[in-house]
Design a binder for these strands. Structure first.
Ligand SMILES: [Mn+2]
Ligand SMILES: [Mn+2]
Ligand SMILES: [Mn+2]
Ligand SMILES: [Mn+2]
Lengths: 218, 218
DNA sequence: ATAAATTTTTAGTCTAGTCTAAAAATTTAT
DNA sequence: ATAAATTTTTAGACTAGACTAAAAATTTAT
């Protein structure tokens, strides 16, 4: 059994490893976890002792299979709980993350399997992120970032990169939700902003927005 | 915000205070929490500093209003989660306690209020224990212990005193559940066992059993 | 190839929570 | 009223997890 703190480190390393495709540096972990590099060094030694990561001094870390599985299990729990909160308990998608951060550490295989069944085996969380299966496998989706979509192409919003409450509320305000149909109708080259058609209205969005919205093109 | 450990101490003191009706000794807390008396002394000093208990050396502790409210809130969460697990996630009443021990520490007022509404404001948990309201008030029920019921009196099972998995499984095996109608049809004075009528069959139960079953007489 | 800048580790400190062993206070028994 | 037994507190130690400051290793720039 891993501690809350160990689980949080594993999760951070998991996400960083995916993103970097490489071994993960002490500093990168420290930044993501808002802690100090020296604390990270201490922890990764413990994780290495438990065979959850492979660690060579000054070389960064990689998850072992066991570590990757543990991380995926925590992420699975996080995302299932988020679905529960939104679908069953009237939470909005910008309110769930902090609670899910707590719930993801509850240890009970039966609980999470029953929750999964209760929710009818959802495949994605409220932010469009895929839910790992029991074996820790995550389906790769072929979503792309809205900023990469070409002019006049239709697409459907399928996820967010930034899931801060701030960004999610911005999307709510402009009626952009998962499943929304959008079309890029203009691009400004000087600031990389774009105009999109959403719910029959035009909306101008900055690069910061288009870079954080995932879509699928038809 | 209180730590997990503080919350567990508050809960233990709450239950002991109810049971003893008096101030609670260091040793009583240590016994209930399966920890050492010296650890208890350390913790009650911290709780006293936070105005959650009143503590005078060698005199035991009592909860303050704030401490009692905090304890009741944790118990409210514990029991609501138990209802959720049994009613929605196919847990049996002997499986819920350990998971609820974890879930009771999740901090989110919205979560617990929404869960309460989702469950349609249950008043009792799966073991027949009353669920404190938002203000921390607990309804007193007029249940009595089965061993006190007189011969030939009809009654309904409304709770258990011992909610260990062992005892609950014993009840399952003999088809005794909350809401079951029973009648005391014989009493043995020498070992204080009794024979009851349950679901049209006779069942002989020991004093240990009748002392741990709460019933209501009509 | 060296020097400078950056990253990472080590050494030492701190808090929360627990423990053991010993001291102090209280309660019970004679 | 003392002595014995019990309860409670204190003193000191330990672990997990975090931090600061300084040392060591690595990377980048000249
Ligand atoms: Mn989240
Ligand atoms: Mn999410
Ligand atoms: Mn319980
Ligand atoms: Mn219960």
């Amino acid at each position: 059994m891993n501690t809350f703190s160990e689980e949080n480190y594993l999760k951070a390393i998991f996400h960083l490893e995916r993103h970097l495709g490489d071994s993960v540096s002490t500093n990168a972990i420290a930044k993501k976890m808002e802690t100090k590099a020296s604390s990270v060094t201490d922890m990764i030694k413990k994780l290495a002792d438990k065979n959850l990561v492979i660690y060579k001094k000054y070389q960064g870390v990689n998850l072992t299979d066991q570590g990757r599985f543990s991380a995926a299990s925590v992420i699975r729990k996080h995302r299932l709980w988020e679905v529960f909160l939104v679908n069953e308990l009237n939470f909005s998608w910008d309110e769930v993350h902090d609670v899910a951060e707590q719930l993801e550490h509850i240890k009970s295989p039966k609980l999470i399997n029953e929750l999964d069944a209760f929710l009818e085996f959802p495949t994605h969380d409220p932010h469009g992120d895929p839910i790992p299966d029991k074996e820790g496998n995550i389906k790769k989706t072929d979503k792309i970032v809205l900023s990469k979509v070409s002019l006049n192409e239709d697409c459907i919003c399928v996820g967010v990169n930034d899931s801060s409450a701030d960004f999610l509320k911005y999307l709510d305000k402009h009626q952009i939700a998962l499943g929304s149909h959008l079309k890029v109708i203009a691009k400004e080259s000087f600031d990389e902003s774009m105009t999109i058609l959403i719910n029959k209205t035009k909306l101008n969005i900055s690069k910061a927005v288009s870079n954080n919205l995932y879509v699928k093109t038809n």
